[in-house]
């Protein structure tokens, strides 16, 4: 690989811009990109999906076939790789540190030099010294720290907080159908007024799409009422129920 290409990958994004987010989320983030060195907080219901979406934005291939950036996931053994891949992430550009234990500040410090986005769930209340050190490292290397978990709020200097509101899952009936997508308001609180967009988060293919793009989801108007036509969805079985007997 040529030298220039390597530098491009390592930097995560071209200098001067920031860590890209998924197109559907651009309206929520000032400038359409996550500012290098900033801190993002994810809380409440849907934090895992929001984390996966940010990881997808950071690692998704740029442009035609340009390489995406790298994303580190620290302390989240349950991180849904498949969900992130469905939203457009490149799994081979994810670095997972499932069990950092009490070495998590060192792990984050090591990763901050190399990746564009770090998704972090601190296993303990972060100490003031660790917060100062890691924030400084993130600013120096232009890495975006994304906090989730119980101590996400305990990180001073969080510029942007994302959460889901007014969620509704579609596709599931009373004993039939399958999950086909979730309509949700993604709310971003940061400097300035709160912004809000209604999104399929995720849609039937696992991607993130604006709520207006309903045609792809035509068969599913909403939760199918009991006694209604049975959805043709659901996994396909080659064997009948007797097989399990």
């Amino acid at each position: 690989m040529p030298e220039a290409a390597l530098r491009g990958i390592a930097a995560g994004a071209p200098e001067g811009s920031g860590v890209p987010v998924l197109p559907a989320l651009r309206a929520l983030v000032p400038g359409g990109v996550l500012r290098p060195g900033s801190v993002v907080g994810l809380t409440g219901l849907g934090a895992a999906s929001l984390g996966a979406a940010l990881a997808a934005g950071a690692t998704a291939p740029e442009g035609e076939d340009g390489p995406g950036g790298w994303c580190g996931v620290v302390g989240l053994p349950e991180f849904g790789v498949l969900a992130a891949a469905g939203m457009g992430a490149a799994p081979e550009r994810l670095l997972l540190v499932d069990e950092p234990g009490d070495r998590w500040p060192d792990v984050v410090a090591a990763l901050a030099e190399a990746v564009g986005l770090i998704l972090l769930r601190p296993p303990e209340r972060p100490g003031a010294a660790a917060v100062r050190r890691l924030s400084a490292l993130a600013r120096r290397h232009g890495c975006v720290l994304t906090l989730t978990g119980a101590f996400a709020d305990a990180w001073p200097g969080t510029r942007l907080r994302l959460r889901l509101e007014d969620v509704a899952w579609h596709g599931l009936g009373d004993g039939h159908g399958r999950l086909r997508g979730r309509l949700a308001d993604v709310v971003a609180e940061g400097p300035g007024p709160a912004r809000r967009v209604r999104l399929w988060f995720p849609d039937a293919d696992g991607a993130v799409a604006p709520a207006e793009t309903v045609p792809a989801l035509k068969p599913v108007g909403g939760p199918v009422s009991a006694g209604g036509p049975v959805s043709a969805g659901g996994p396909v079985h080659t064997v009948a129920g007797e097989e399990i007997a």
């Binding site: 390597l6 069990e99 070495r103």
Partner: peptide, 30 residues
């Protein structure tokens, strides 16, 4: 393997492996 790991990422991964052992940092494969 398939996608090249850049020098910076490899160095960071080495440091994490020195802290947590060889299996401490992983890349997912579908």
């Amino acid at each position: 393997g398939g996608t090249a790991v850049t020098d910076r990422v490899a160095r960071a991964a080495d440091r994490v492996q020195a802290l947590l052992g060889h299996h401490g940092i992983t890349r997912p494969v579908l």
